[in-house]
Measured scan of single mutants.
Amino acid sequence: MRKLSDELLIESYFKATEMNLNRDFIELIENEIKRRSLGHIISV
């Protein structure tokens, strides 16, 4: 996760939620978004 750019991480989050991927996977992405202080972009 740390090698993904912020932009790609956010894009991955939206794609994963759109495709209804595994909730655990989405939570991993959400946690990384929060760690990077980007939660305001997706309202996490």
Rank of each mutant, 00 (worst) to 15 (best):
M1F: 15
M1R: 01
M1T: 05
M1C: 12
M1A: 04
M1Y: 13
M1L: 15
R2V: 14
R2Q: 15
R2D: 15
R2F: 14
R2N: 15
K3S: 14
K3V: 09
K3A: 14
K3M: 14
K3L: 15
L4C: 04
L4K: 03
L4D: 02
L4N: 02
L4Y: 10
S5D: 05
S5C: 06
S5T: 12
S5V: 03
S5E: 04
S5K: 04
S5W: 04
D6M: 04
D6K: 04
D6A: 04
D6E: 04
D6L: 05
D6I: 06
D6H: 04
D6F: 05
E7I: 10
E7N: 09
E7D: 11
E7A: 13
E7H: 11
E7P: 06
E7L: 10
E7T: 10
E7K: 13
E7C: 09
L8D: 15
L8K: 15
L8G: 08
L8R: 12
L8S: 11
L8I: 10
L8E: 15
L8Q: 15
L8C: 09
L9H: 00
L9S: 00
L9W: 01
L9K: 01
L9Q: 01
L9E: 00
L9M: 02
L9R: 00
I10M: 07
I10P: 00
I10N: 01
I10W: 05
I10C: 04
I10A: 03
I10R: 02
I10Q: 02
E11Q: 13
E11C: 08
E11M: 12
E11K: 11
E11A: 14
E11T: 09
E11G: 05
S12W: 15
S12F: 15
S12Y: 15
S12Q: 13
S12R: 08
S12C: 15
Y13M: 02
Y13G: 00
Y13W: 14
Y13A: 01
Y13Q: 00
F14C: 08
F14L: 10
K15P: 00
K15T: 09
K15Q: 09
K15V: 09
A16C: 05
A16S: 06
A16Y: 07
A16H: 05
A16F: 07
A16W: 07
A16P: 01
A16T: 03
T17K: 15
T17Y: 12
T17E: 07
T17A: 09
T17P: 03
T17R: 13
T17V: 15
T17S: 10
E18W: 07
E18Y: 09
E18V: 09
E18C: 11
E18L: 11
M19K: 07
M19Q: 13
M19P: 02
M19S: 11
M19Y: 07
N20H: 11
N20P: 06
N20F: 07
N20D: 08
N20K: 11
N20A: 10
N20C: 10
N20T: 06
N20Q: 13
N20E: 08
L21P: 04
L21C: 14
L21T: 08
L21E: 10
L21G: 08
L21H: 07
N22S: 13
N22R: 09
N22K: 08
N22A: 13
N22L: 07
N22T: 10
N22Y: 05
N22V: 06
R23Y: 08
R23G: 07
R23N: 08
D24A: 10
D24G: 09
D24Q: 08
D24H: 08
D24S: 10
D24V: 06
D24R: 06
F25S: 06
F25M: 11
F25Q: 09
F25T: 08
F25G: 03
I26L: 08
I26K: 03
I26Y: 03
I26D: 01
I26R: 04
I26S: 02
I26C: 04
I26M: 06
E27Q: 12
E27Y: 08
E27K: 12
E27W: 08
E27G: 07
E27N: 11
L28Y: 04
L28K: 07
L28A: 11
L28Q: 09
L28W: 04
L28I: 12
L28G: 04
L28N: 05
L28V: 10
L28D: 05
L28R: 06
I29C: 04
I29K: 00
I29P: 00
E30W: 14
E30A: 12
E30V: 15
E30H: 08
E30L: 14
E30Q: 08
E30K: 13
E30S: 08
E30I: 15
E30G: 06
E30F: 13
N31V: 09
N31C: 06
N31L: 13
N31K: 11
E32F: 02
E32I: 02
E32K: 00
E32T: 01
I33D: 00
I33S: 00
I33C: 02
I33N: 00
I33E: 00
K34G: 04
K34T: 08
K34S: 06
K34C: 07
K34P: 00
K34F: 13
K34Y: 12
K34W: 10
K34L: 13
R35M: 04
R35A: 06
R35L: 06
R35F: 07
R35Y: 06
R36M: 01
R36L: 02
R36W: 02
R36C: 00
R36D: 00
R36F: 02
S37D: 13
S37V: 07
S37Y: 10
S37P: 02
L38S: 02
L38V: 02
L38A: 02
L38P: 01
G39Y: 14
G39L: 12
G39K: 06
G39T: 12
G39N: 09
G39D: 12
G39W: 15
G39A: 11
H40W: 14
H40L: 07
H40V: 08
H40M: 07
H40G: 08
H40S: 07
I41C: 09
I41P: 04
I41S: 06
I41H: 11
I41F: 13
I42R: 02
I42P: 03
I42T: 05
I42C: 03
S43K: 12
S43T: 13
S43V: 12
S43W: 10
S43I: 13
S43G: 14
S43C: 07
V44W: 12
V44F: 12
V44K: 11
V44T: 13
V44G: 14
V44M: 13
V44N: 14
